[in-house]
C-alpha cells in the first residue's frame, strides 16, 4: 500500500516539475498557461491521492479527496480567467509564422 502511495506521489512530483519546465520553455503567455494550467492540476491531484492512499480510509483521506475535486473544478476556471483577461486586453498569441 505504501509503495502505491509513493508511486502516486512521485508521479505527482513529476507532472508538477514538467509543468514548471514548460512554463520556462514555452514562448508566450498562452502557451505557458497550457503548461501551468494542466500539469499542476494533475500533479496536485496525483500527490493528494497518494497522500490519501498512505493515510488509508479515514476522515482525513475523505477531506483530501474533496480538495482534489475542488482543484479539478477551480483550476480550469482560474486558467480561463487569466487567458480571457489577456485576450481582451490585446495580448497577441505567438505563432510559428511570426517567428
Amino acid at each position: 500500500m505504501k509503495i502505491l502511495a509513493v508511486l502516486f506521489l512521485l508521479a505527482g512530483f513529476f507532472f508538477t516539475a514538467v509543468a514548471a519546465i514548460g512554463v520556462l520553455r514555452f514562448p508566450d503567455f498562452y502557451t505557458r498557461l497550457h503548461a501551468s494550467g494542466k500539469g499542476d492540476t494533475l500533479g496536485i491531484a496525483l500527490s493528494l491521492i497518494g497522500l490519501a492512499i498512505y493515510e488509508g480510509f479515514s476522515l482525513v483521506s475523505l477531506k483530501l479527496m474533496f480538495i482534489v475535486i475542488f482543484i479539478f473544478l477551480a483550476n480550469p476556471i482560474g486558467t480561463h480567467v487569466l487567458a480571457r483577461a489577456a485576450f481582451r486586453s490585446g495580448v497577441k498569441p505567438w505563432t510559428k509564422k511570426g517567428e
Binding site: Y30, T31, L33, H34, G37, K38, G39, T41, F72, L73, N75, P76, I77, T79, H80, A83, R84, F87, R88, P93
Partner: peptide, 26 residues
C-alpha cells in the same frame, strides 16, 4: 464544456460569447 476543454491538455478556453468558443490550441 469550457472546463473540460481547459482540462484536456493542448487546449485552453479563452472566451465564450453567445455560444461561440474561442479556444487556444497548442
Amino acid at each position: 464544456l469550457a472546463n473540460s476543454i481547459t482540462l484536456t491538455p493542448g487546449t485552453v478556453t479563452i472566451d465564450l460569447e453567445d455560444g461561440v468558443y474561442y479556444v487556444h490550441a497548442i
